[in-house]
């Protein structure tokens, strides 16, 4: 594998809430074009890590660079052009409740490209809505009229509105039915091929890990204990990793993956 450009680099990150230390001396590097999975038990600070990288959580110490630019201590105006290059999907979708789904999708486009005519904006909203697998009448609905899974899809549509180079996904398939989750995996991997997306993916979904992740980072003991492809991780002698991937659910997901590869 040729050495690719590093998109996200985290060095010596430390995060704490009060006396509780979440991250201590955490290092991480995500390369261009890969789908980078992050796993870890509940409360190991996966979401906090993502929030630190996108600048919502000010770390106590450490260095974070995204697209080669330092993200710590930047003012909002400077960070704006970096923000334009990424899309974020929050756990609950985080849609703006006063706007319809279509308007939600148009918000980032209007913010960064003012002056696009409404007709084109509407067309963009239409195909983004359809692309993220929402039904034909979802575009005109308000978030409160959608189910949890639909909200998540609408959130993805908004995250993809600017065709970002980098996509942050916080448990995207949680709460989706298996069909929807599989369709989502496929959507991400297709978009990755077509757009050259880099994806930072927090997940508990073993099927997603097997199906689309190139590399997986394991968060435990306040830091990243291992990074690698799933076979590489399986070879490691770490109790939590072994339990995670070789537990009943891990084995089932692995079996499905093998079967699919055999079929292909």
């Amino acid at each position: 594998m040729t050495e690719r450009e590093t998109i996200i680099e985290v060095k010596g990150l430390r995060n704490s809430f009060g006396t509780q230390v979440v991250h201590e001396d955490l290092d991480l590097a995500v390369k261009r074009g890969e789908i980078f999975g992050v796993v870890g038990g509940s409360g190991t600070g996966k979401s906090v890590l993502m929030r630190s990288i996108i600048g919502l959580q000010k770390p106590d110490a450490g260095e974070i660079t995204v697209f080669g630019e330092s993200m710590i201590g930047r003012d909002e105006e400077e960070a704006k052009h970096v923000r334009r290059r990424w899309g974020v999907l929050f756990q609950g979708g985080a849609l703006f409740s006063g706007l319809t789904v279509a308007e939600n999708i148009q918000v980032p486009i209007k913010e960064f490209f003012p002056g696009l005519d409404q007709e084109l904006l509407d067309e963009i909203a239409v195909y983004k809505t359809a692309m993220s697998g929402l039904g034909v009448d979802a575009g005109a609905k308000y978030p409160s009229e959608l189910s949890g899974g639909m909200r998540k899809r609408a959130g993805i549509a908004r995250a993809l509105a600017l065709d970002p180079e980098l996509l942050f996904l916080d448990e995207p398939t949680a709460g989706l039915d298996p069909i929807g989750a599989a369709a989502f995996d496929q959507l991400i991997s297709e978009l990755r091929h077509a757009l050259g997306l880099t994806v930072f993916l927090i997940t508990h979904d073993l099927d997603t890990l097997y199906a689309i992740c190139d590399r997986v980072a394991v968060l435990a003991d306040k830091k990243v204990v291992a990074v690698g492809t799933i076979p590489e991780l399986l070879a490691l002698d770490h109790e939590w990793i072994q339990e995670y991937f070789k537990g009943p659910r891990g084995r089932a997901a692995a079996a499905i993956n093998e079967r699919e590869e055999a079929d292909a």
């Binding site: 239409v126 195909y127 983004k128 359809a130 009448d137 575009g139 005109a140």
Partner: peptide
């Protein structure tokens, strides 16, 4: 594939 008649405006 995504070019479907999606409704985005309220009636």
């Amino acid at each position: 594939g995504a070019d479907q008649p999606v409704k985005i405006k309220r009636d």
